[in-house]
């Protein structure tokens, strides 16, 4: 319980600034407060919400926006596939609820916890993320950007440093993990530079290619419970 709160807290902190930015941007797109709330409460997927606002402003139709969202968020399919191997038996009745909160950061935090993931642990981490995201969006809409601009910008780095801080202890322990992280990042940078894949798909290609390479090259039987 205490560990779950501790695990969820950095996500809470990290989600407030982008959530507020979403609220501020939504208001300038002449979206109502309720619609802004519904966006964050029902979709709960950062990048795709910003993209949707941009597409709305360019006048793209409903089908195009929904299709783009599917492409951008499809990486969560792979993240849920991994988490399904880690979930406690007792949590299996609640899959429909637990699946809703699989964001990049929730997935990353959960991945590197020890042992099977219990229902309450997952829900506490997800609620930390969700409350910050929905609360931040509404606050941003109502209050506008009341934090100094430079501070808000600096807080943008928090989500990335969170991911780095999560993976570092594993990188220290295992050369294979370090290799997976670095090759995947380099491949992603190359794919984005080449620019022929739509938003969100460079990450999917990286996960598929690098994990396949991992499955091919990593031969010893990983009876460990955790990820590599």
């Amino acid at each position: 319980m205490k560990n779950a709160v501790k695990a969820g807290f950095p996500i809470f902190i990290g989600y407030i600034p982008p959530a507020m930015a979403f609220g501020v941007l939504a208001k300038t797109c002449s979206i109502t407060l309720f619609e802004c709330f519904l966006f964050s409460a029902a979709v709960f997927a950062g990048a795709s919400q910003f993209i949707a606002l941009n597409l709305l402003m360019t006048g793209m139709g409903t089908a195009g926006i929904i299709l783009t969202t599917l492409l951008v968020n499809f990486r969560h399919f792979l993240m849920s596939a991994y988490l399904s191997t880690r979930i406690d038996k007792l949590a299996k009745k609640y899959l429909a609820l637990l699946a809703f909160g699989v964001t990049d950061e929730v997935f990353s935090v959960l991945s590197f916890q020890k042992g099977q993931l219990s229902k309450s642990f997952i829900l506490i981490v997800q609620f930390s993320a969700y409350s910050a995201w929905v609360g931040g969006s509404v606050a941003g809409f109502i209050l506008g950007g009341f934090l100094p601009e430079l501070l808000t910008k600096s807080m943008g780095v928090a989500l990335y440093s969170l991911l780095l801080a999560i993976i570092l202890p594993e990188v220290k322990k295992s050369f294979k993990t370090a290799l997976l992280v670095i090759t995947s990042g380099v491949l992603n940078a190359v794919l984005i530079k080449l620019g022929f894949l739509p938003d969100g798909w460079t990450i999917i290609v990286c996960i598929l290619v690098i994990s396949c390479a991992g499955a091919f090259f990593i031969t010893e039987n990983p009876h460990q419970e955790k990820s590599l």
Binding site: D104, S108, S111, F112, I182, S227
Partner: peptide, 9 residues
């Protein structure tokens, strides 16, 4: 099991 590290990278 390779997915988390690859995804974070």
């Amino acid at each position: 099991k390779c997915i988390p590290a690859a995804a974070i990278g």
